[in-house]
Amino acid sequence: MSFIKGYDPDTLREIVDARACKDRLDEIGEQRSLPALLERVWLLKVLGRLEDSLVLSEESVRVARMAGTRKDLLRARILHASVEQFRGAYAAAENELATCAAEAEGQGWNAIAAFAYQHRGKVYFDAEDFVSARADFKRALFLRQEAGAPDDQLESTLLAIDAADRRRTGSSALVG
């Protein structure tokens, strides 16, 4: 079941079915497996429970470091950075995502690298650096195409590129 109903074209945030997210959070409960931890982090984040999400995302990074694969650790770090972004800690999020993207690309893990670039693009977007946001979204699109990503991922990236273009054009019109 997909909890995401779409993306806000102005903020690029997920539009979710809050009731379904809360029900799923209740269903997962206090499970401690890495997949359950990561899902709980995301659910708490999209429900706006950022402090709870931050604490749990830090725990998920520790669990992934101790018991997961390198790919698991990258996914946990990217999710942690996305929580930082939602909290407005753009510099910390940007730094973490840059490191994750570089490592994933170095390993040839295009899907994970695309995930990191997509999220770093959202950090830039929130920080109103629309040129950098667009560049990261374009890189994410290329990597997702290379990885054979599903249509919904390609569509969300195309939406992000379009939003960055609109905001960039709107920003330059205000300056000029």
Rank of each mutant, 00 (worst) to 15 (best):
M1S: 10
S2G: 08
K5P: 10
G6E: 03
D8H: 11
P9Q: 14
D10R: 05
D10L: 04
R13K: 11
I15M: 06
A20H: 00
C21H: 04
K22I: 05
D23H: 06
L25P: 06
D26S: 05
E27Q: 00
I28F: 06
L34R: 02
L34D: 02
L34W: 02
P35M: 01
A36V: 01
A36Q: 01
L37W: 06
V41H: 07
L43N: 09
V46M: 12
L47F: 09
R49P: 09
L50W: 10
L50K: 11
S53Q: 07
L54I: 10
L54Y: 12
L56E: 02
E59K: 03
V61G: 06
V63F: 01
V63M: 01
A64F: 04
M66D: 07
M66W: 05
M66I: 06
G68I: 09
K71I: 05
R75E: 07
A76N: 08
R77M: 15
L79W: 09
H80A: 07
H80M: 09
H80Q: 14
A81R: 13
A81E: 13
S82Q: 14
Q85Y: 10
F86K: 15
F86P: 10
F86A: 13
A91L: 00
A98I: 00
T99E: 00
A101W: 00
A102L: 07
A102C: 08
E103N: 07
E103I: 09
E103M: 11
A104F: 06
G106Q: 01
Q107W: 14
N110R: 14
A111N: 13
A113D: 08
F115K: 10
A116K: 14
Y117P: 11
R120K: 12
K122R: 13
V123P: 10
F125L: 11
F125Q: 12
F125K: 14
R134Q: 13
A135K: 13
K138A: 12
A140D: 04
L141H: 12
F142L: 15
L143T: 10
L143I: 09
R144T: 10
Q145D: 15
Q145Y: 11
E146W: 13
A147Q: 13
G148W: 15
A149G: 10
L154D: 11
E155N: 14
S156V: 15
T157G: 05
T157P: 03
L159T: 00
A164T: 08
S171A: 05
S172H: 04
L174A: 03
L174D: 04
L174Y: 04
V175G: 01
